[in-house]
Every structure is written in structure tokens, then in C-alpha cells.
Design a protein around this nucleic acid. Structure first.
Lengths: 137, 137
DNA sequence: ATCTATGCAAAACATTTGCACCACC
DNA sequence: GGTGGTGCAAATGTTTTGCATAGAT
């Protein structure tokens, strides 16, 4: 009666061990409604299992990123922030006052990006679009 | 017969002193065809004036950024890179193989960004679009 | 003469890593 | 039981900062 989540299954398939720290971190990311940084994830992890170390958080996040389970975002000034990968690509609007992150997508912009890159003789392997804004009223 | 450049004049107007380190750093940025990071700027500066310190490079870059004379870019993984502000806004395509940076503009994308932000109830104060690509052929 | 800018060295951060021990498969 | 993962602490890389002095206005 093992209750493996989809993400735990993906680690198994990648030949990686399913340890307690990893389970805890995966759960935190799954529960997170925001885009926490490594320190925040560490703080939340310690509440669930006091023995987890910050080094493991970093190692696990890097591993999960390589496995495609989480995405790393380096927003302006400040540490990298993480979110569970949901398959769908999206971009971010960051509230400069609160730090809140709003997700959005724009197929039109994606198309234009591709066209621009091609015109310059490049094929896009990754891209990043971030809007920094202030709430109106 | 003072030969003040436009940028030196802007510092004067901002009530800032025009020192030798600042003159050197401004000249380096003016001569730079690439987007150097603080360490690279420091290395180039030392060749022109051996007494310049890395701390001053950082302090000067921050000051120049606040004055609007240079722009700071934090590309994926790696230190911040700088370029002289030319007034015109542009985005970047980074060659993932060589690290080369190609500048481009897209008024259409800018418009779409503004529309998206407005729809979400935000006014854009800044934005960042980076394409990471590989040269075709 | 005043007051800002600098150099130096130390500190602050974010992140990575070496090593001995632990625990998953 | 073997190997990969973890904790700890030290190292790394980038950027900032305190303090006494030098230098621009």
C-alpha cells in the first residue's frame, strides 16, 4: 500500500532513491502556492523533519531540476526561487511591491520569439520572460 | 578645454564627483563591445590604472546603474553583466555555446507585454526577455 | 576646508563540496 | 552489503560594507 505520488514515481524511474528528505521536499513543493527559495524550503522542511540540512535542500533541488520535476527561476536581485514543474510552460509577472509572482502564458509572444531567433540564425533552447510591475490602484 | 563625455556630464549634473576610477570605468564601458561582468571590468581597469580596487568597481557600477548610465543584466547562472545604457531598450539572445550576447528589439512583443500586464491589473515598471539559443548550422 | 570616494580587509550571502557515516534497495 | 544520499563544516564565488585616508570641488 505504498502511496507514491507521480513525482515519487518519476524519481524511481530515473533510478534515484526515494529518501525521507526527498519525500519531504517534494511534499513542500507540492503544497507551495508561492515560489519559495532554498532557505524558505529548508525552513518548511525542518518543521516536518528536524534532521534535514540546507545542503540536502540545495542538492535535492538541483537534482529535481535536472530530472525536470522542478523549475528554477532567478528573478532580479535575490536567491533562486523554485516551483514544481507542471508541464505547461508559463512566464512570470513579479509584483515589485510584494514579491508576489503571477503566472501567465502568451502563445503570441512565444511565436514572435521563435521568429526572431530564427531570423538571427538561432534555435531557442530556453527562454525567460519576466514582467516586473506595480498593481494599478 | 575639458573633454567631458556625455556620461561624465551626466555625473556632474547628478552632483557626483568625477574621479579617476570613475573615468576609467566609464571609458571601459564605452569601449566594450561585449557585456562584461564586474571582474572583467576590474581586470580591464587595472590595466589602465593599477590602483583601482574591485570594491570601487562594484560601487561605481551600482552608482552608474542608479544614475541610468549603465544597465545590469543577471543572465542564467553567473555574475551580473553590464553594458552602457544607450537610451534605446533592447532584449538579449544569449548563445548558450559561446556566451555571446546578441541584442534585438521587438515592438510587437513590447506591446503584448503591456497588454498582458494591464489585463492582470498591473503597470510594468521593468521587464526582461532573454532567449537562450544555439546557432543553426 | 569640506565631504565624498577610495582602498583594504572583513563580512555577508547564496551555493557547492569533501568526507565520514547512514540508510535505501 | 554495496552504493548512493546525508549531515556537517569548510570552501567558493559574488557582492557589500566599515573604517581610515586620499582626493575632488
Amino acid at each position: 500500500m505504498s502511496e507514491l505520488t507521480e513525482y515519487e514515481r518519476r524519481l524511481r524511474e530515473a533510478g534515484l532513491r526515494l529518501t525521507e528528505p526527498r519525500r519531504v521536499i517534494l511534499r513542500i513543493l507540492d503544497e507551495a502556492a508561492d515560489h519559495p527559495d532554498a532557505t524558505e524550503i529548508f525552513q518548511r522542511a525542518v518543521k516536518k523533519d528536524a534532521r534535514i540540512s540546507l545542503a540536502t535542500v540545495y542538492r535535492t533541488l538541483k537534482m529535481l531540476e535536472e530530472t525536470g520535476v522542478v523549475e528554477r527561476h532567478a528573478f532580479e536581485g535575490g536567491p533562486a526561487r523554485f516551483e514544481q514543474a507542471d508541464g505547461e510552460h508559463h512566464d512570470h509577472l513579479i509584483d515589485v511591491e510584494t514579491g508576489d509572482v503571477i503566472e501567465f502564458t502568451s502563445p503570441r509572444i512565444e511565436e514572435l520569439q521563435k521568429a526572431i531567433a530564427e531570423e538571427l540564425g538561432y534555435e531557442i533552447v530556453d527562454h525567460r520572460l519576466e514582467l516586473y510591475g506595480r498593481k494599478i490602484r
